[in-house]
Amino acid sequence: MKAIELFAGAGGLGMGVSLAGFKPELIVEWDRWCCDTLRENRKIKESIIAKWPAPIEGDVRDVDYRPFEGKIELITGGPPCQPFSIGGRHRAHDDSRDMWPEAVRAVREVRPRAFIFENVKGLTRETFSTYLGYILLQLTFPSIKLGPDEDWQDHRDRLQRHHTSGGKIEYRVIHQLVNAANHGVPQKRERVVFVGFAEGIEADWCFPRETHSLDALLHSQFKSGEYWDGHKVATKDRVINERFQTRGQRLSAKPSELPWRTVRDALAGLPEPTPRDKDHGILNHKLQPGARSYVGHTGSSLDEPAKTLKAGVHGVPGGENMLRRADGSVRYFTIRESARLQAFPDNYALHGAWSEAMRQLGNAVPVTLSEVVAKSVRDHLIASTMQAGKA
């Protein structure tokens, strides 16, 4: 099945989509460092993206999607999230970086059978509830364009009237706040995922069921001890989260889900990083000095999923991008360690200096999460086609 990837970034969402069985026909990304990363990894024969087309390095607003009309099964992308992020200016549509209108335009011009878009948790805040509703209406009726002299509130009202008066739905859209840790990613990363299917495709799809849980992790740590035994962690080296200890000890039956994956799980097999002049021969695995702990930025525990990796401000990643050892000391995650926390493969090279590579990873979608969602969408499209063929 053919796909288009917008706002590709370092390739996290696109890699998951490729692993789910889609072949990208067009890749668009404006950031030159991200494009360098994509170009570099296309040269690696074993890379997931080896057969991707070269990325279009430029503004999505300059791309004409009409040649792809009716030829694409899936459009994916993560429109820039700064207008909605906790650390942003919270201006939504009034922020020039809001690229949701371009995501909608791509759907309007291509008419794919389905789409997957993602954005930050901040989009679900009450402050943005009206604009979130507007996004959903645009995705449901992409052919109803914003007029040349129409502001977005008037456009929203027009879309709403069309909807309530029984206007024909073009795409059936579902959105959900998803925690990547619940799908096997070693990171507590919450994102809003939007999935839409073109009218005419059977609409009995729902988000994939969660496969991992905190209770399963706590059971393996505080009841069975399987977690510590599996990692051969001595009692003195165990980092115990007192907030979780009581909850874990109260558990009786073993949960049916798999345990949340932890930082220790993710980093298994990687040696302790060394200074920049030594790297163990492991790609992007060098120690970055300067980490320090302060209020609100205490790093991620080894024995829990990592905190949400962040792109940082002015090239400085936040304290979430640190590892907190058993003795309380901290150090920055290496690029390779951060890549593992985002489920990027070990042969995937991040282009640029440490801060630049960390920015790319902080903006990425975990590969595992995108694969889970995209595979479910692909299975649904296949089932719908087979069902239509029997009709």
Rank of each mutant, 00 (worst) to 15 (best):
Lys2Trp: 03
Ile4Thr: 03
Gly14Tyr: 02
Ser18Ala: 08
Leu19Phe: 00
Lys23Pro: 05
Arg32Ala: 10
Cys35Leu: 07
Thr37Cys: 04
Ile44Gln: 10
Glu46Ile: 11
Glu46His: 11
Ala50Ile: 00
Lys51Pro: 04
Pro53Ala: 02
Ala54Glu: 12
Ala54Gln: 03
Gly58His: 02
Val60Thr: 13
Val63Gly: 05
Asp64Lys: 10
Glu69Asp: 08
Gly77Glu: 03
Gly77Ala: 02
Gly78Tyr: 03
Gln82Ile: 03
Pro83Val: 14
Phe84Thr: 06
Ser96His: 14
Arg97Ser: 09
Trp100Thr: 13
Ala106Cys: 12
Arg111Trp: 07
Arg113Ala: 14
Leu123Thr: 05
Thr127Ile: 10
Phe128Tyr: 11
Leu132Ile: 11
Gly133Phe: 08
Tyr134Val: 04
Leu136Ser: 13
Lys145Arg: 15
Glu150Val: 05
Asp151Arg: 01
Gln153Met: 13
Arg158Pro: 12
Leu159His: 13
Gln160Leu: 15
His163Asp: 15
Gly166Asn: 10
Asn179Pro: 10
Ala180Lys: 08
Gly184Trp: 10
Val185Phe: 07
Gln187Met: 09
Lys188Asp: 07
Val193Asn: 00
Val193Thr: 09
Phe194Asp: 00
Arg209Asn: 12
Asp215Cys: 03
Tyr227Trp: 04
Lys232Phe: 08
Val233Tyr: 03
Val233Gly: 08
Val233Cys: 07
Thr235Asn: 08
Asp237Val: 10
Asn241Cys: 07
Ala253His: 10
Pro255Val: 04
Pro255Ala: 01
Ser256Gly: 06
Glu257Pro: 09
Thr262Ile: 06
Pro271Gly: 09
Pro271Glu: 04
Pro273Lys: 06
Pro275Ile: 12
His280Met: 10
Leu283Val: 15
Asn284Thr: 05
His285Val: 13
Gln288Gly: 08
Ala291Tyr: 14
Arg292Asn: 12
Tyr294Ile: 05
Val295Ala: 09
His297Pro: 02
Leu302Phe: 15
Asp303Gln: 12
Glu304Ala: 15
Ala306Thr: 11
Val313Ser: 06
Val316Cys: 02
Gly318Thr: 12
Gly319Arg: 06
Leu323Ser: 02
Leu323Lys: 11
Arg324Asp: 03
Arg324Met: 11
Arg325Gln: 14
Asp327Lys: 14
Asp327Leu: 13
Arg331Gln: 07
Tyr332Arg: 15
Ile335Pro: 10
Ile335Cys: 01
Ser338Met: 04
Gln342Ala: 01
Gln342Asn: 01
Asn347Met: 02
Ala349Thr: 11
Ala349Cys: 14
His351Arg: 08
Glu356Ile: 15
Gln360Arg: 05
Leu361Ser: 07
Leu361Arg: 07
Gly362Pro: 07
Gly362Asp: 00
Ala364Met: 01
Thr368His: 09
Ser370Val: 06
Ser370Glu: 02
Ala374Pro: 06
Lys375Gln: 06
Asp379Asn: 15
Asp379Met: 09
Ile382Phe: 05
Thr385Glu: 13
Ala388Met: 05
